[in-house]
Amino acid sequence: MSAILPPGTPAPEFTLHCTPDQTISLSELRGKPVILAFYPADWSPVCGDQMALYNEILSEFHKHQAELLGVSVDGVWCHAAFSTDRKLHFPLLADFEPKGAVAKTYGVYNKSAGLTERALFVIDKEGVIRWSYLSPMGMNPGADGILTALESLS
């Protein structure tokens, strides 16, 4: 695996499905900070689920006008079911075909597991990575680092 992209790197452009018939491109969000949260898989069985936690903290992210995007290799229908079940209020992107292609460009694809790593990026409104963090796969990184990074943008 190549290394996680460090701060100062222009964030690689991507277009991924967020629903079966809609896509999101990173460049559409230019002008706002973007939080990219790569995570290994939908349906993590614990209340400490990372996406559920971010769902609770969305209003704090929005105070910085930041948009949160979750990314895993799960397909769109899986994301749709997961998102409905957990009542998520932010998009989950399917890095599904070719599998993990976007994660690879960010240096956060775990080839042996066939999953995206648990990795966070805060991208500024010009599209430059300002903070990145690779978490141990089993460890939910929480939101503190994201909030600190967003605060340092302004």
């Binding site: 614990v46 209340c47 400490g48 936690l53 903290i57 704090e60 939910n140 990184p141 929480g142 939101a143």
Partner: peptide, 15 residues
Amino acid sequence: DFLSGVRSGVNGTPT
């Protein structure tokens, strides 16, 4: 309480 937890690295419950 909640925000103090977020800023302290609470990543699920219980922490």
